[in-house]
Design a binder for these strands. Structure first.
Length: 113
DNA sequence: CAAGTGACGTAGA
DNA sequence: GTCTACGCCACTT
């Protein structure tokens, strides 16, 4: 990891740290806010590389996949994530976070007319 | 410098 | 509604 305060990862952590309790943001949204609309995957990488000591102060569990789905991955991560979110009052529907209620940004869901 | 990796996203079947 | 195949990005080796 070298050095550099402008590292992408660092920016991801800083932004995620700003997500209020009870709210969630998608990887894509975080990437867009950082100026990289297609860097969702890189955001996932940043959280995956999140050092243990940082994990304690970065609410990584508030970052989820598009559509409010928790990204499956090896380990107890997903299960823990859901538990933490529920502990903050985040509601789920059909296994997905209700973005309309807890999304950091207004859901840009297509209008049903 | 080139190749590989992976907590994503979208389009297509 | 599900599952699969690509593309994208930052970072490591």
């Amino acid at each position: 990891m070298s050095q550099g305060t402008d590292r992408f990862f660092r920016r991801v952590y800083a932004l995620v740290r700003e997500i209020p309790r009870g709210r969630v943001a998608t990887y894509g949204q975080v990437a867009s806010m950082l100026g990289v609309p297609r860097g969702a995957r890189a955001v996932g990488w940043a959280l995956r590389a999140l050092p243990g000591d940082e994990a304690g102060r970065v609410p990584w569990h508030r970052v989820i996949g598009a559509g409010g789905r928790i990204s499956p991955r090896p380990g107890p991560g997903p299960q823990v994530q859901r538990r933490l979110l529920e502990g903050e009052g985040v509601t789920f529907g059909s296994g997905r976070v209700d973005l309309a209620r807890h999304g950091l940004l207004p859901p840009g869901r297509p209008r049903r007319r």
